[in-house]
Write a protein that binds this DNA or RNA. Sequence first.
DNA 1: GCTTGACCTTGACGCAACGTCAACGTTTGT
DNA 2: ACAAACGTTGACGTTGCGTCAAGGTCAAGC
Lengths: 249, 249
Amino acid sequence: MKIGELAALVGVSTRTIRHYHHQGLLPEPERRANGYREYLLRDAVILARVRRLAELGLSLDEVRDVLADDQGKDLREVLRELDDDLARQQLSIQKRRERLAALLAETDLDADSAVSPAMASVLRTLPAGGSTFADFDREMLALVDTTAGPGEREAFAAMLRPLTEPEAVARGHAIYARMDDLADAAPDDPRVAALAREVAGHLPAEMKAMMLAATANGHDQWLDEMPLHLSPAQAKVFDLLMDILQEER
Amino acid sequence: MKIGELAALVGVSTRTIRHYHHQGLLPEPERRANGYREYLLRDAVILARVRRLAELGLSLDEVRDVLADDQGKDLREVLRELDDDLARQQLSIQKRRERLAALLAETDLDADSAVSPAMASVLRTLPAGGSTFADFDREMLALVDTTAGPGEREAFAAMLRPLTEPEAVARGHAIYARMDDLADAAPDDPRVAALAREVAGHLPAEMKAMMLAATANGHDQWLDEMPLHLSPAQAKVFDLLMDILQEER
DNA sequence: GCTTGACCTTGACGCAACGTCAACGTTTGT
DNA sequence: ACAAACGTTGACGTTGCGTCAAGGTCAAGC
């Protein structure tokens, strides 16, 4: 039979058959005088076998291997690996669907897709007006929010809740202003230490605990990544803050 | 921050970041005097968003679309489609794992991977010695076996069981020989009609039913595909056989 | 004999989402 | 001062075919 007939018989495209020839999965058959490939039933059998394995999810390379040491010895091994692989895929899809469901539930309430709704509501009430450092802080919070896992986001936003109360907002506003003032200050400026203490008094206990845990945990980077936008004095505030937190513990 | 730092911060490769630039997913940042890209925290936020969506399984094109009409209006729609897609994938993986489990159970008993074990056991007892037509028949059976669904295979093999009993094997042997004899005969040879009647008496009732159902069912091809290897007289045997089956019904 | 349409041939590019050189300039640490 | 590490652009490799491109072949109808 001709290639189109074989293709129709087994249910693949002629391109697929030629591809398999090229990959050595299906031997090239005899040619007719006109150059057409002349297939026999055997070829259909082989092709059908290849398709069966390929449709199970084996790569063409794996199919070739399996067909090569035809003993069925290696076959079971490969199939088991494949099954493990599929099991993993199932799990990962399951997790993705769960995250999706959470995301869908969220966006039903709040259309802001940039950050989680929990964080969005926090950001709405945090001080923002014109402070360079406030902008920096907001971006940092947004970043943490987007990189966190689904459950972590709510926990993180909950941690920030105390900072959204009117008193705390006013106090935060002042802190941002004092941070801005340190933009060009020297690291040993007396305002640095004072501000660190102020911040230590301002932050919720849970947040301090998390910051300590994060630095202890090898996630030391979260501070070291940012100094690009912090002046030396501002960076020093963070250093001192961390020292204070360690002592408090 | 430089590209490597951004990459480490968000947890992707620098290549990925440049790829996103190229795809317009992440705006190209300012350059330093030396040509290095200079990233800000905003970029990290955007990049993290892209990654979140991409890891959910959105294509980069879809991510771009979602980020474009940022209203979250289209987002839910896309997410729902994605969820449907994932559900379908879950199902297909589930089916594949079931087929795999069946295949593994089979191959534990029988290492012949060319055909199903049920068919293998049938083929082992069917007559085979030196007959051209017997070879043809075996190949056709193997082809049907490999192209059939998992459940169908056992049913098909079961249908052939009666033909593996000693008496039937001897009779089949004779039929094959008579088929071989018709290789160069004319279609109106008297042996043709006689052989068709013999075959009709030889085949199990269930198999006849299936053959009739297959031809009635638009699956008319199963005969028309093969004549390449059948002489005109041999093809005529099949035609007459089908006529007889129709009358019997 | 000629056209038309349905096949066949080989060859090559396209796709998704990056990985991985290559060839070269820059920065950083000792 | 020199090597290691990092940055730049550019281009090819991967997987499993789909999809032209540019023809040659064959059967049928005029």
